[in-house]
């Protein structure tokens, strides 16, 4: 763990943590409801979907690639899993298996195209976004699924706390999904050799091939993992929304990208951490929630989000440049 502790004070994560804590503290003082358990639980639940996707996207960004297609992947997985669930009793495991399986399959499809077409991952996944989404809308004719099975609608939850007003606080599936995605990604990136290979690939792709990393197979794993997470996240989203709409998710891919990048992941690869990503997601979630609680009309919320992204990426770039200058002086 000392690997993580070293130099933490001057890392991007530390500064981001400070920003998130200050913002959270300010909102807790300025609004009565921000720090309430109810609000925090709602925040966790409503951000579970984008948080999970951010965890998956982090792995792709660390490897030096990018994936734009995951919202379409999620839509396909969600629609298929819920359609099957409506026709036969497959239970939670069955739904999860279909979502995760279909998601990984589409992720593998991306990886195969990136490996064989030698086209940059952003172009390939823009194309597959259109492909997956177009086919889904064509096949489903855009029909929403309003009636989900009762067991799915009711969900599963474990009440852990009941307050004075008899309001129950429960651990819900979306929360578990979120924790699962971040924990799995953290173990993968930090604790497994495959994760270190992902960092190595993003750090120097030529060298990765030279030291014997099977790059094509590793890419299968990276994009497959993104798809798997997207498939599972789509179920969390369906549980939150209590319905399935084939066009509800596409268009949110760039918001997720923004959260991961705010968390310090670099588009050039090799850099990024789960902790930073969590903070990036939290920052955007706090901001939107806080503006609402402060009484700022919801219409203005995207404008603030955009401004924060712009300022944050500018500060990151300035800082990175300063660091590079320092290294150049050392080596000169």
């Amino acid at each position: 763990m000392r690997e993580m502790g070293r130099g933490f004070a001057r890392s991007h994560e530390a500064r981001l943590l400070l920003v998130v804590v200050v913002l959270g503290g300010f909102l807790a003082l300025a609004t009565p409801s921000f720090a309430s358990l109810q609000n925090l639980v709602d925040l966790l639940t409503s951000n579970a979907f984008s948080g999970m996707l951010a965890a998956g996207l982090l792995v792709v960004l660390v490897s030096g690639g990018i994936d734009i297609s995951f919202t379409a992947t999620a839509s396909v997985a969600q629609y298929a899993a819920m359609t099957v669930a409506n026709h036969s009793h497959i239970g939670w495991l069955g739904v999860a298996a279909i979502g995760a399986g279909l998601g990984s399959l589409l992720g593998l499809f991306n990886a195969v195209l990136i490996g064989t077409l030698r086209l940059s991952s952003i172009i390939v996944t823009i194309a597959t976004l259109n492909l997956f989404y177009g086919l889904l809308m064509f096949v489903t004719r855009g029909d929403e699924i309003f009636a989900l099975p009762d067991w799915f609608v009711n969900g599963a939850s474990w009440t852990v706390y009941t307050d004075a007003q008899q309001a129950e606080y429960a651990i819900t599936l979306p929360m578990l999904g979120l924790v699962f995605a971040f924990a799995l990604t953290a173990i993968l990136l930090k604790r497994s050799n495959i994760g270190r290979q992902v960092y190595a690939l993003g750090s120097n792709a030529d060298a990765a091939a030279r030291v014997g990393i099977p790059v094509f197979r590793l890419n299968l794993l990276i994009y497959g993992y993104m798809g798997l997470i997207a498939g599972l996240a789509s179920l969390v989203q369906a549980q939150n929304a209590q319905s399935v709409s084939p066009n509800a998710l596409v268009g949110r891919e760039l918001d997720v990208l923004a959260a991961v990048v705010l968390g310090g992941a670099s588009l050039t690869g090799g850099v990024g951490s789960v902790f930073g990503t969590i903070l990036g997601v939290m920052l955007l979630a706090f901001l939107q929630n806080g503006l609402l609680l402060l009484g700022v009309p919801s219409y203005w919320s995207p404008c603030f989000t955009g401004a924060v992204i712009l300022v944050a990426v500018s500060l990151l770039a300035i800082e990175r440049r300063r660091q590079q200058g320092r290294v150049r002086r050392v080596s000169a």
Binding site: E3, N193, R196, Q197, Y199, A200, G202, S203, N204, A207, A208, V211, G212, I213, G270, V271
Partner: peptide
């Protein structure tokens, strides 16, 4: 691998 530590770079075969 510039983003990995000195130790990981030297003993990278342990990551394979």
């Amino acid at each position: 691998f510039p983003d990995l530590t000195v130790a990981e770079n030297i003993a990278f075969s342990r990551h394979l």
